[in-house]
Amino acid sequence: MSDRQLAVEFRGVSKLYGALAVLKELSLSVPQGEKIALIGPSGSGKTTVLRILMTLETIQAGTVWVKGEPLWHMPKGDGLAPATETHLHAMRRHIGMVFQHFNLFPHMTVQENVARPPQIVLGVTSGEAEQRAQDLLRLVGLAQKGASYPAQLSGGQKQRVAIARALAMQPAIMLFDEPTSALDPELVEEVLAVLRDIALEGKTTMLLVTHEMSFAREISDRILFLDGGAIVEEGPPDQIFSDPKEERTRLFLKKIIAAGHRID
């Protein structure tokens, strides 16, 4: 099996909210280092894919695999048993997430937001954590803001701190849930620039949920178009955007263009 090279795999995953199926037997696989963009109308289930991977949402059917290990299950005899919190804790080590609404810790400075988690969770020494935080804040262009509190930053700055915070945990897989959707238009580009750097660096597996079509086209290796809790179409960015095979993909892109967004 080539499982070992896969960073993420969904096998027939279903997610239900009561009677409402948010994901319907969804399957996907993401090789290590691949940059994937998930696009689709709201309610299509793309954010749910990320939230399941981050263990923020449970699944009702199927299996999720991260680096060849089951995420929501544990091997038991010949089969699988539901994961314990200990197992989830061990698995989360591989994954980091950047949220639409940043979710920075408001009672900590910018520097503390980035330095404390590796210290508390990974047991990194305080000296190393502070150094790592400074390096990452420089990477996202906020070296001067370490002593500020999140409330003193613009949305774009907050999101860049959130990216630095996620990177500080050095996850192999990074999830970005509409990272620019909550930003004023003039602040979008500064966040995309940081994401571009991370994508170009290459090693990290990226799953990006976005409405920034031209950015998705630019940085991703593959586009997944989701609708109604299933993958309707997937393929290389140029094919999806220039020559979509499915009617629903065409309709969606048409709406996006009509709303004034660029897809080239």
Partner: peptide
């Protein structure tokens, strides 16, 4: 809720989440 989710995403354990993230706020 986002604070709980961020703590989980950063792999804080339950006790760490209460002490370091939730109660201080």
């Amino acid at each position: 809720r986002g604070q709980w989710e961020a703590a989980r995403a950063l792999n804080y354990q339950q006790g760490q989440t209460w002490l370091k993230i939730i109660l201080p706020q």
